[in-house]
């Protein structure tokens, strides 16, 4: 929202050479098969995280520390995917947790899962930082691709295996440019202006194209589940 440069400024600011052909070659996390029995563990984890986050919202510092211990590896992973650079990811993570502390009172257990809320806050803060540094767009994703594969995976992530495969196979089913743009927007803060500049198409055309791709992506994911 307010506080970072407008979209048009970003594309003007970014590296003067936006290389549209540089596709994001980042690796997705490696996935493994899992045993049963994780569901209960995950439900318990979620309940205790919800409790800790609600207590953080009341100003409980020890609950905040518990939130940090339970989620810092996951959220550092989020920052690394967006920044690639470890130092920048550390700063972004610190920024994210300060935001989490300040905004924990706005978390509503009934509306979102705690991890979804935490990842969203972290991702949005990281993208804001990326934009304020003039690094948003397509190119930054190449930096992100250099992160090594994280391992080992936490059990919580193993839970999401089905969803991961679904997302990637549905994204792969989209037009290549649209798929790349959706990834670039989510992980690199790319905007409609960036893609319009790259493809040399009017903004309106680009918007309709991506909006159609989003509907298609959702249909693919919902249809399969």
């Amino acid at each position: 929202m307010v506080g970072h440069p407008s979209r048009l400024e970003i594309s003007a600011h970014g590296d003067s050479t936006i290389n549209c052909n540089k596709l994001w070659l980042g690796s997705y996390p490696k996935l493994m098969a899992t045993d049963s029995g994780i569901v209960d563990l995950e439900a318990a984890r979620r309940a205790s995280l919800t409790e800790a986050l609600l207590r953080t919202g009341k100003g409980d510092r020890s609950a905040f520390e518990a939130v940090y211990r339970a989620t810092s590896a996951k959220l550092f992973g989020v920052c690394l995917r967006i920044f690639g650079d470890r130092n920048e990811a550390e700063e972004a993570l610190q920024d994210a947790y300060i935001t989490i502390w300040n905004r924990a009172a706005t978390f509503e257990a009934g509306r979102a899962s705690p991890i979804s809320w935490l990842v969203t806050v972290t991702r949005n803060r990281a993208i804001d930082r990326l934009r304020s540094k003039g690094k948003a767009g397509f190119t930054s994703l190449d930096e992100a691709s250099e992160i090594e594969d994280p391992s080992p995976l936490a059990e919580a992530q193993l839970m999401a295996i089905g969803d991961d495969k679904l997302l990637y196979s549905c994204i792969d089913g989209l037009d290549r440019r649209d798929a790349h743009f959706i990834k670039s927007a989510f992980l690199g803060g790319a905007t409609y202006a960036d893609i319009a500049a790259c493809d040399g198409e009017p903004l309106g055309t680009v918007k309709s194209r991506i909006r159609r791709a989003l509907v298609k992506l959702r249909t693919c994911m919902e249809g399969a589940s």
Binding site: F76, G77, R81, I82, D163, D164, F186
Partner: peptide, 8 residues
């Protein structure tokens, strides 16, 4: 969110 997965 799976795009952001990976613990470090």
């Amino acid at each position: 969110q799976p795009m952001l997965a990976g613990d470090v």
